[in-house]
Design a binder for these strands. Structure first.
Length: 772
DNA sequence: ACGTGCCCTTTTTTT
DNA sequence: AAGGGCACGT
């Protein structure tokens, strides 16, 4: 399709292009206008993917090909959904209310399930369980089966089930090979029991929102047909991150027409696939042309976001990956821009300090903090920045950090609300039955549980029955009678007063507020504040049900406008965003690439980490600033760090290495050497440290199984590898670079307790000290 | 029934 | 380093 690049254009509709098409390049325009038939858009970072999607929707709406309610558009994250809604509203001016089927896989799945709940053995007011509820439920099942919880942790089983659900497997579909090893072959039964238990609880977990949807469609063709008629167009964002269940879900929905005519448009970038650990299948992208024969494929390769240097660095890095579809990003931006800055710092404290200084400079230059972000690999890295920024008085905002709705007080309060909304919610009941303390302890709870199991009734209903008997002691009976009466009362009041007012009353009348008021721990004022905030946030919702749904699906708070602030978030949650200045701290082996990713997924894991690095760099419009700490404290222990291999994979001519000066020695940016970031170790060479030697020894002795190491690259693990003893003994005089001179006062494997002359008693790793 | 204190694991990433 | 789980004591 040949079109002039600019100027007034006449579209296929024989009139001047609508405003919303202005400024699109040829490929983008093509992707927007190709409405009929399957379409795969391969969109590199910063090539206007979201713009294409939103404009495409605007185009469908303005040409009246379909109404908002006839378009299914799926995103991966709530943030992406929110942004799309905003941008569509801007384009067509219409209210977003007209697009009920724009949302995440999970929220749309929940919506569909609620409409047909009875067909999947649920009621339309079913509860959506979060991980915490899930774990507690599994623990109960393990107890019933007499399975040792130490040996077979509930968490692990939750992970396994999540995997199965991600792969679209119902209990009957799970192969013994998959489930056999857990608890001596009880895996499959546990899964089946768990699912059955969810039904009696009138609850669904996250995986069910898709899995049960798939079952619904398969078992009820007439329901599926209804959606085939309804959805005239389907759009999927971030297709590279879809897993098997999501794939099946989409394919079922697309089956209304012959594959070659399906109006389905998927957008993705294989280089930004970073959810493999959650079951994402990049193959879904590769398979698209097979599933939908005759699909058009449009590549977007023109990057409008970043400077040439940033693109060069990102492209150079990602080229180290083998499994790629291969795209080249080209920039239209003429200037090379600043090189990528790589700064070496002593430890994470200095890292936070130096980034803080950099941010202050940015402010002084008159730039907005809103245009800057710190992207970390793991959320524990966030704290140090927060602390530093608080002392600096620098405005920051944590995105997806320690989650509001996961706090204890919030979960307790929600449990009360859940129970009012849905009396069968046993997990909620269990949570609050003795919170605040009411004198209902383990023995009472056990009686309740046993009775409930025999009666096959929810706990609350069971309590009502038990009140009529002598099973409980009089004191407990009175307490429970009052509690039940309160719940009846609250449920009644829900009809007459606004739910947020009721919430406040519930918290007061239940004694929950008082519990924290009487608590004298330093964080109880904060908790009370959080509770207030919770009640406040309820006002934004029409109904209690709507509010609870929001909480379950959108675990992040609506990001309140806190003015100009730098964002702190994980690399994962940064996908899809862009900033002028992007800070990428913690580029050290073991942290980034993450050790666990390497151990668990080997080469594939490494490639996924590299894609994460690619995502990180390409978030930057103007400047990317990477930093490496020479030392990092993990689990309370100091560990020496080796610069990330990804640093070596950046093109030398687009990188500028800085040293903060205060760091000891610093890294020689030698060039030519095996590693440009090969560090001049504080003690001659890092390769001489006990930790490193052990790593080597372990490497040599490792054959076949066990943790993998990629391509012979050594990853130093200076934590105790088990059984190894230290070269130091009690009384040795030693030197530690951070803490100075000291005397060994305890040895435990390679962990030493040392009384330092200045720093006092600390636990450190032996690889980190030297004889003094 | 409840509180205290010790020991243990933990944190990679998210809907 | 810290929070949760568990055993024990009141």
């Amino acid at each position: 399709m040949q079109r002039p690049a600019a100027g007034p254009i006449t579209s296929q509709f024989g009139r001047r292009d609508a405003d919303y098409l202005a400024g699109l390049n040829e490929e983008q325009r093509d992707a927007v206008l190709s409405l009929e038939g399957p379409l795969l858009v391969l969109a590199g970072a910063g090539t206007g993917k979201t713009r294409v999607l939103t404009t495409r929707i605007a185009h469908i709406l303005t040409t009246r090909k379909a109404r908002g309610s006839e378009i299914l558009s799926v995103t991966f994250t709530n943030k992406a959904a929110r942004e799309m809604k905003e941008r569509i509203a801007k384009l067509v001016g219409a209210s977003v209310e007209g697009m009920p089927w724009l949302g995440t896989f999970h929220s749309i799945g929940a919506r569909i399930l609620r409409r047909h709940a009875e067909l999947v053995d649920l009621k339309s007011d079913f509860t959506i369980l979060d991980t915490d509820d899930q774990i507690r439920l599994i623990k109960q099942l393990l107890q019933v089966e007499n399975i040792d919880e130490k040996r077979w942790p509930a968490r692990q089983f939750a992970g396994m089930m999540d995997n199965w659900k991600n792969r679209g497997l119902l209990p009957k579909d799970v192969s013994p090979a998959d489930s056999g090893f857990f608890a001596n072959g009880k895996g499959q039964k546990l899964y089946a029991d768990y699912q059955a238990r969810l039904k009696t609880l009138n609850a669904a977990d996250f995986g069910d929102l898709l899995l049960e949807c798939i079952r619904l469609f398969r078992e009820n063709p007439e329901v599926l047909a209804e959606y085939h008629r309804r959805f005239r167009y389907m759009l999927v964002d971030e297709y590279q991150d879809s897993n098997v269940a999501q794939y099946l879900w989409l394919r079922l929905l697309a089956q209304g027409k012959p594959a070659a005519e399906a109006n389905i448009c998927v957008v993705g970038d294989d280089d930004q696939s970073i959810y493999g650990w959650r079951g994402a299948e990049v193959d879904n992208i590769l398979r698209f042309e097979k599933d939908f024969p005759g699909a058009r494929v449009i590549k977007l390769e023109r990057n409008y976001r970043s400077t040439a240097n940033i693109l060069k660095a990102a492209s150079h890095l990602i080229a180290f990956n083998e499994g790629r579809l291969g795209k080249t990003l080209q920039t239209d931006v003429a200037e090379a821009g600043d090189p990528i800055a790589v700064t070496s710092v002593w430890d994470s404290e200095e890292e936070a300090r130096s980034i803080g200084e950099e941010l202050e400079q940015i402010q002084r230059r008159g730039e907005n903090l809103n245009d800057a972000a710190i992207l970390v690999r793991a959320s524990f890295q966030m704290r140090e920045f927060e602390e530093r920024f608080i002392t600096l008085g620098l405005n920051y905002r944590v995105i997806g950090g320690p989650r509001f709705y996961e706090r204890k007080e919030i979960r307790d309060a929600l449990a009360y609300l859940r129970l009012v909304a849905q009396p069968a919610d046993d997990l909620a009941f269990e949570r609050i039955i003795n919170t605040p303390k009411r004198g209902l302890g383990d023995s009472t709870v056990k009686i309740l549980f046993d009775a409930a199991r025999h009666q096959r009734q929810p706990l609350l209903a069971t309590v009502r029955m038990l009140l009529e008997t002598e099973e409980l002691k009089p004191k407990q009976r009175t307490t429970l009678r009052n509690l039940v009466a309160q719940f009846d009362d609250w449920a009644e009041r829900l009809r007459t007063i606004p739910h947020f007012e009721l919430a406040e009353q519930i918290l007061d009348e239940s004694g929950y507020t008082a519990m924290w008021q009487n608590d004298k721990s330093p964080d109880s004022p904060g908790r009370l504040e959080n509770l207030k905030e919770l009640v406040r946030s309820m006002e934004e919702f029409e109904t209690l049900g709507g509010f609870l749904e929001h909480i379950a699906l959108v675990m992040d708070r609506a990001t309140g406008d806190d003015g100009d602030a730098v964002s702190i978030m994980t690399l994962h949650s940064a996908k899809g965003l862009e900033f002028n200045n992007v800070f990428l701290p913690g580029w050290e082996e073991g942290l980034f690439p993450h050790q666990r990713s390497l151990d668990e997924s080997g080469r594939a894991g490494l490639e996924e980490e590299r894609r994460l690095a690619y995502v990180g760099i390409t978030r930057a419009r103007k400047r990317a600033l990477i930093s490496v700490a020479q030392n990092r404290r993990i689990h309370g222990l100091w560990q020496s760090a080796i610069p990330s291999r990804f640093l070596d994979e950046l093109p030398a001519d687009a990188v500028e290495v800085k040293d903060t000066g205060s760091s000891y020695g610093g890294y020689g940016y030698g060039g030519g050497a095996a590693s440009r970031f090969n560090k001049a170790d504080p003690f001659d060479s890092v390769y001489e440290t006990p930790g490193w030697k052990r790593a080597q020894a372990q490497q040599a002795s490792r054959k076949g199984g066990g943790p993998m190491t990629i391509e012979g690259d050594l990853v130093a693990r200076s934590v105790d590898l088990g059984g190894s003893s230290s070269a130091y003994t009690f009384g040795d005089r030693v030197l530690h670079l951070k803490f100075g001179y000291g005397t060994v006062s305890g040895v435990e494997g390679n962990k030493l307790t040392i009384d330092f002359e200045k720093a006092g008693r600390k636990r450190v790793l032996d690889s980190f000290i030297k004889r003094g």
